[in-house]
Amino acid sequence: MNGEIWVVVERKEDGVRRVCREALGRAAALGGEAVAVVPGGDPDEAAAAVAPYAKRVLAVAHPLLDDGDAETWAAVLAELIAVRRPAAVLGGATARCRGVFARLSARLGCGYAADVTGLDVTPGGRLRAVRPVLGGRAYATLEFRGPTPDLATVRPGAFPAPAAGLAGTVERVTPATGALTARVRFAGRLPLEAGPVDLAEADVIVAGGRGLRGPEGFRLVEDLAAAFGAAVGASRACVDAGWRDHSCQVGKSGRTVSPKLYVALGISGAVHHRMGMDSARTVVAINNDPNAPFFKHADYGIAGDLFELAPALAAEVRKAKGE
């Protein structure tokens, strides 16, 4: 691709959100010049966190960017895009960046592909994106027309995350403050019940369903998740019954996840649930019912007593990890 491919980078504690590293890796492979654009935060910290993953870093500093409201991010990015004219702009398919990219597309009149799982370049030098539709039951290939840059957010887990190893040059940018108004006021920020690992970016997810028989049964899921170092997910039935918060729900009306490993404990495997996790690389289904539909859509299946299998599996995982 001729020209610059920007990746809008979201920070996470003192690091970089994994999906943004994955997007940076893909951007570098598309042949253009990959540039990490980091809105908000301390520019020195941002530069130190991002430079190992990109040859060039634009650290955009302004206090109104720190809260991460999509409107202020989009205003600043649109201003930079108009001046520097990148060929494409990528981001992670997070709630925040989906809001930012919807605004960028509307503001610039540029095409946008959300939540893509494949990205390459056409002979004409435009992006070509593949994205799931209808709950992952089909994949659409999208081509861009009209004005550039081509915009896309990438699904977490769709591309490999490159290891740190670069030492990018850092440029600091101070946006024109006139363009910024903060109309969403951040009154508080709290961590989630979901546990120490974020569902959207987890390598491994252990999810529980109705087969656990009650909220106490979820301790099996939590213990197995702890053994794997995994995030905890839940089926709709468990969330609707109040066993878990809806931020844990995987499926059509919950989160869509793409971990390397998805372990389903006591989940029957209804189509609504599978829509949220069918792009997981390896799927393990464990269920009391040997006829559970999930077994038709898993790589490995065990039909047996969950209350014996989950602790046995947790013990084996701990042994394999040398704990």
Binding site: S105, G109, C110, G111, Y112, A113, R128, V130, P132, V133, G136, R137, A138, Y139, A140, T141, L142, E143, F144, R145, G146, P147, D278, S279, V283, A285, F295, K296, H297, A298, D299, Y300, G301, I302, A303, G304, D305, E308, L309, A312, L313, A315, E316
Partner: peptide, 28 residues
């Protein structure tokens, strides 16, 4: 339109499931 669908593909098929038998510790 600023994006157009060039085509559709079926999702990648998962190979048939391997069912694992045995007692709980063996299966684990």
């Amino acid at each position: 339109p600023t994006v157009a669908v060039a085509g559709y593909q079926a999702p990648p098929a998962r190979p048939p499931v391997k069912m694992i038998a045995g007692t709980a510790p063996e299966a684990a």
